[in-house]
Every structure is written in C-alpha cells, then in structure tokens.
C-alpha cells in the first residue's frame, strides 16, 4: 500500500475498519448493559387506587355468555416508576374471578400505553372498560370479582418486568340480576 519512499503500513485499511467496527459494537453492548445495570436497583414508590364505579350485567343468549360493562375510578401515580432506562409503561387492569367451570378466569378490561412520565399519573373517575368483562359461559352473575392494576415496564434496553398492585385489590360483587 505504501508509496515509494514511505515504509509500508503494517496494518491494512480493512483491518483498521474491522477493528473500529467491532470496537463500536463492543462499546454499544457495554453501554446497553450499563443502562440496564444502573437502573436494576431503581426503587419506585407507586401509589395506586382502583375502584368500580358502575357495572351493567347482560346475558348474551345467542353467544352463550355473560357480559359486563364496567366503569372504573382509577387514581394511579406511576411517575416514580420511570427512570432513564424506561421507554414506556403498559398499564392494564385485570378482573379475576372463579367459576364452576374454571378455577381461574383473568380478563383484561382496560389498558393504556404510557410513554411520558408526565402522563404516568392516571386520574379519572370515568374509565369505561376498553374490553368488556366477558365470561366463557354464564358464570358472572352474583359472582365475586377482583380488580387488579398491573404494569409492564418496557426498558430502553434490558429486562421486561411485570408489576402488580396486589396491595390495592378492589373486590366487588356482580349484580344478581341482568340489566
């Protein structure tokens, strides 16, 4: 490669490019690891309050199942969950109950993607369900249902973690009569 009068370079252009490329790759990997590692012990202090405001139970004879329309009051302050490695939160409310046919039924009734810390304080007395509470059969009437607020932390890079506000479970009784 070297011109006349100059000593030939012992390292070729391609070797330099190769080294540079893999050095960049290693750095990227290291920084990704650091981003995940520095936030691993981040402790959040979320404040959650969840309540049922209104419920309407219907019997859908043709489909063969019970369906309940819910209206919730949510006051959840998840701002402290955010840190520099959190890309977004996926917040969802599950309704859990037992029936004669199933030992466990879990139905997500509402969810929301939160991308900004400022939006992470969810406060509304009129959250109508996004997905109706639908049973597989006719097992909702006069049944006890538990509402739980959960969130999935989606990092910029690293572990995907699920959190549940199990200390703030709201239990309610579905009406004994159809609307």
């Amino acid at each position: 490669m070297g011109e006349e009068g100059r000593a030939p370079c012992p390292v070729s252009f391609w070797q330099r490019l190769n080294a540079l490329f893999f050095y960049t790759l290693s750095c990227l990997g290291a920084f990704a690891f650091l981003a995940a590692a520095t936030t691993y012990f981040h402790e959040a202090e979320p404040r959650v309050s969840l309540q049922l405001e209104r419920i309407m139970l219907r019997r859908i004879q043709s489909a063969g199942h019970d369906q309940a329309i819910l209206s919730l009051a949510i006051d959840a302050d998840l701002r402290s969950v955010f840190n520099w490695n959190v890309k977004q939160l996926f917040v969802y409310v599950t309704a859990e109950y037992e029936t004669q046919a199933n030992v466990l039924n879990q139905v997500v009734v509402w969810d929301s993607v939160i991308s900004e810390p400022e939006q992470a304080h969810i406060k509304s007395d009129l959250v109508v369900n996004k997905y109706s509470l639908t049973d597989q059969g006719f097992g909702l009437r006069d049944n006890e249902v538990k509402l739980v607020l959960n969130w999935n932390t989606v990092p910029a890079t690293g572990l995907l973690t699920l959190s549940h506000a199990f200390d703030q479970i709201h239990t309610f009784q579905v009406p004994a009569t159809y609307a």
Binding site: F90, Y92, T94, A101, N102, V103, L104, N105, Q106, V107, V108, Y131, T134, Q136, N150, N152, L160, L162
Partner: peptide, 30 residues
C-alpha cells in the same frame, strides 16, 4: 397469566400480549 407477552411460532412469529386466561379444573388453559 394476563399481561404476559407470549410468542406464537407461526411462519412469522407473533409476539402478542395475553388479554384473557381461562384455566379449567383439569389444568387446561384457554
């Protein structure tokens, strides 16, 4: 459980979140 992200291994894998879980007495899960 509801909220888990699962993969259905189709030709193009589908990565979706569980919306409903119905677990029968026999242990079978819908």
């Amino acid at each position: 459980r509801a909220g888990d992200i699962v993969v259905a291994d189709r030709e193009i894998p589908i990565v979706h979140r569980i919306l409903k879980v119905h677990e029968k007495v026999s242990g079978e899960v819908d």
